[in-house]
C-alpha cells in the first residue's frame, strides 16, 4: 500500500503538466482541464492499488495515463462536474500556472478552444500527435486504432484546423 502511494505521488508530479495540457486541448477550457486531469489521476490511483508490483513496474505510464484521460473526456457529461471532496474543500484554483503572460494565455486558450471544437475522431489523434507529441505508434496504442487510421485522421484534423475543407478522399 505504501508502495502504491509513493508510485502515485511520483506519477502525479511527473505527469501533471502533460495531463493538464492534454485536458486543456481536449476540452478547450482550463476549468474542465483541471477536472479531467484530477479525474484521470484518481482513476489511475484506484487502478494502481489493484495492480501487482510487476504490472506497476512494467507500466508505460505516459501512454497509460493518456488512454485514461481520453476515456475520461469521452465519458464526461457536459455540465456535470465530478464530486469534489467536501472536507478538503479544495476548489480548483483559477490562478494561472507560471506562463502568466495574459496575452499568451489568451492566445493559448483561444487555440485550445479551436482544437476542442474539432470532431472527436480528429481531435484526439491531432492532440496526441501534435500537442502531446506522442509517436504515431503511441497514438495508435492509446486510441486502439491502426497506425494508418491515426495518420489519416491527424492529416484531416490539421486541415480542418487550418480552415481548409475536410477534403475526404484527397491525399
Amino acid at each position: 500500500m505504501e508502495g502504491t502511494e509513493r508510485v502515485f505521488e511520483r506519477l502525479v508530479r511527473d505527469h501533471q503538466d502533460r495531463i493538464y495540457a492534454l485536458g486543456l486541448a481536449l476540452t478547450g477550457n482550463r476549468h474542465d482541464a483541471e477536472d479531467v486531469a484530477q479525474d484521470t489521476f484518481l482513476r489511475a490511483y484506484r487502478a494502481l492499488a489493484g495492480y501487482t508490483p510487476e504490472r506497476v513496474r512494467e507500466l508505460k505510464q505516459r501512454a497509460w495515463l493518456h488512454r485514461i484521460a481520453v476515456n475520461v473526456v469521452r465519458n464526461r457529461v457536459r455540465g456535470v462536474r465530478p464530486r469534489l471532496v467536501e472536507l478538503n474543500g479544495s476548489e480548483p484554483s483559477t490562478t494561472s500556472g507560471p506562463e502568466d503572460d495574459a496575452l499568451r494565455r489568451a492566445e493559448v486558450d483561444a487555440l485550445a478552444a479551436r482544437v476542442a471544437g474539432l470532431p472527436a475522431r480528429y481531435r484526439e489523434p491531432v492532440v496526441l500527435r501534435h500537442v502531446q507529441e506522442l509517436s504515431y505508434a503511441e497514438v495508435a496504442e492509446v486510441l486502439g486504432q491502426p497506425v494508418g487510421t491515426v495518420k489519416a485522421n491527424v492529416h484531416r484534423g490539421l486541415k480542418l484546423l487550418r480552415g481548409e475543407s475536410d477534403g475526404h478522399g484527397d491525399d
Binding site: 502525479v12 508530479r13 503538466d17 502533460r18 484530477q38 506562463e99 501534435h130 500537442v131
Partner: peptide, 30 residues
C-alpha cells in the same frame, strides 16, 4: 499549425494541482 499546437502542449498545471490530487486520493493529508 504544428508550432501553435506545441505551444498548447507547453501549458503547465495550475499551482497546487498535484497537492490537491494527492489530497483527494488520500495519499497526503491537509
Amino acid at each position: 499549425a504544428m508550432i501553435d499546437l506545441r505551444q498548447l502542449g507547453a501549458v503547465k498545471a495550475p499551482v497546487g494541482f498535484a497537492e490537491r490530487v494527492l489530497a483527494s486520493a488520500g495519499v497526503t493529508d491537509s
